[in-house]
């Protein structure tokens, strides 16, 4: 019996350590189990119906933000790692008068900044329409829910391009690219668009009346989204809503265009009746 050789004080200490250690070990086991449950919760959340159609298309932002609240809480760094203060620099598109406020993250700039609240009504599911978690490349599993683009959970061509596409001077009938000819038009989109394509922005993710009112005050507001600097080389093929005084014959390039926005972006009928001008 090895303990017999130890002094009794040491034996008592050993017993005390055992008594304290046992609950600690049990607590650690409980913790480990709890963490196990945590990863189970992650899988359960990943496959929650809200991530799939049709539930995702009916989800409210509050439902998404229960788990993804960081998209609105996260802020930019105060300084870059090299010590550049976040507010010290602005890109060209941030120099237009309507681009107010401090540097913000992508999601906050589109959802909660004052200009976003004034002119837009973007929802999480305006862009995020769900994806199959087992697909690294969308549309490749038997249960795939959409055809999207590789490596992205949002399809740029059907979302971002709607506002951040290139202006198309050929189709607009401009003598050259807008940055080169804008002086001749008083640098105002409304010099033409007061009468041409005047029925616009009639979708549930934009506030059409607020946009018109803001543009009437300051034509630079248009550049807040369109063409201050286009992100992409393509132009979005907007649906061709008729406008008051529009010609009945369509130009060749508009022949295959949709005449109405996608069904899920159509504004509620009551709003539509009030706001839509009759051609």
């Amino acid at each position: 019996m090895p303990f017999r050789f130890f002094p009794s004080r040491l034996r008592q200490l050993f017993r005390a350590a055992l008594l304290l250690g046992l609950p600690f070990a049990l607590w650690q086991l409980w913790q480990a189990n709890r963490e196990g449950d945590g990863s189970h919760d992650l899988w359960r959340a990943t496959y929650d119906p809200i991530h799939f159609a049709p539930a995702i298309l009916q989800a409210r932002d509050e439902d998404c933000l229960v788990c993804h609240r960081e998209v609105l809480l996260d802020r930019v760094r105060e300084k870059s790692p090299a010590g550049l203060p976040a507010q010290a620099r602005r890109a060209a598109y941030q120099e237009v008068s309507t681009y107010a406020g401090e540097q913000e993250t992508f999601h906050r700039r589109h959802l909660v900044t004052p200009l976003a609240r004034e002119l837009m009504d973007l929802r999480c599911n305006t862009c995020h329409v769900g994806h199959e978690p087992r697909d690294e490349a969308p549309g490749t599993s038997a249960t795939a829910i959409r055809q999207g683009s590789l490596r992205k959970q949002v399809d740029v061509e059907s979302t971002c391009l709607k506002c951040h596409g290139r202006l198309n001077p050929e189709q607009m009938g401009l003598p050259g690219p807008w940055p080169e000819v804008k002086a001749a038009f008083g640098d105002s989109c409304l010099s033409c668009h007061a009468s041409i394509r005047s029925v616009r922005h009639r979708v549930n993710y934009l506030k059409a009346e607020a946009i018109e009112a803001a543009a009437a005050k300051d034509s630079e507001i248009c550049h807040g989204c369109h063409g201050g600097r286009a992100w992409y080389r393509l132009s979005y093929p907007y649906p061709r809503h008729p406008w008051p005084g529009s010609e009945s014959s369509l130009p060749a390039w508009a022949k295959d265009r949709a005449t109405e926005s996608e069904a899920r972006f159509l504004p509620p009928p009551t709003v539509d009746r009030e706001s839509r001008q009759k051609p």
């Binding site: 760094r77 300084k79 790692p81 090299a82 993250t105 992508f106 999601h107 700039r109 490596r151 971002c160």
Partner: peptide, 29 residues
């Protein structure tokens, strides 16, 4: 990219159609 000038606004990440810019949550850039 010079990530030491990045302030972590993540606009480039959203704009890229091919998912190239990657978010490093530890360095916030």
């Amino acid at each position: 990219i010079d990530s030491s000038l990045c302030i972590g606004c993540r606009k480039c990440e959203a704009a890229c159609p091919y998912g190239a810019p990657q978010w490093d949550p530890q360095e916030w850039v």
